[in-house]
Design a protein around this nucleic acid. Sequence first.
DNA 1: CCGAATCCTGACGGATACTG
DNA 2: CAGTATCCGTCAGGATTCGG
Lengths: 136, 136
Amino acid sequence: METEDGTRSAGGDVGVTTGARGDLFSPDCPTRLLLDRLGTKWTSMVVKVLARDGELRFTELRRRTPGVSQKMLSATLQSLVLDGLAARRVEDTVPPRVHYRLTELGLSLEEPLAALREWAEEHMPAIRDHRAAAGA
Amino acid sequence: METEDGTRSAGGDVGVTTGARGDLFSPDCPTRLLLDRLGTKWTSMVVKVLARDGELRFTELRRRTPGVSQKMLSATLQSLVLDGLAARRVEDTVPPRVHYRLTELGLSLEEPLAALREWAEEHMPAIRDHRAAAGA
DNA sequence: CCGAATCCTGACGGATACTG
DNA sequence: CAGTATCCGTCAGGATTCGG
């Protein structure tokens, strides 16, 4: 649970207008918030898997995300659902089956994310080269 | 320190090399490595400032990156230089003046990064909305 | 099968003080 | 001015255990 919130956003937008958009580095900066999420280890992977494979059950999703623990997958999915990037669907059976899928919002995130992936795959060798040359 | 010998990446017949490209989640995955860097708090900000303002001195750069400490700015710049994303130029005077600028590689990163910013600025309100509705 | 709760660690990162 | 070094708090996140 996050200790930091600050703005209670009761009225929605009080003084956020100037800092939130454009080129500001305030805690309201949407880019910062987004990178915070993408920076968490599994978010981008889960988004990618869901974008590719569509709706998946919890265990199935876990099997396709090598290395993830139940805890982190659960936490990641909760964050995604909370942000409206993913949707959770429960079949009320015994045992229950829980499915996850990306929402429209989540799918739209895939575009810039894919651009970032392309850049990474293209230029990472150059970066490794630089690191090696610098004596890393 | 990771002494990774990436020299035999061209082979690609068997072994570890399979995971490096495409859609794998191995530690070799370039997207993961890139997101690890962008996930660090100040990297994206510094890249953005340097992309916009061009070459800057240390203190000047610090002034334009509100909230950053000397330590973190220094560490961030070292990482960027090490990765070949930024270049360091020293005027050998007293006191010394150190300038930083983005390399071609660093500038090329700005494109996908800008795409991510656009997405963030456009869709972040929707995310905040979802969070509020979910009872965050 | 799907998760929540707990313990523990290592890394990120802020504040401060010191050097050249 | 441009860092480096140290102390310290916080938190992601892995392993494990428990519940429904």
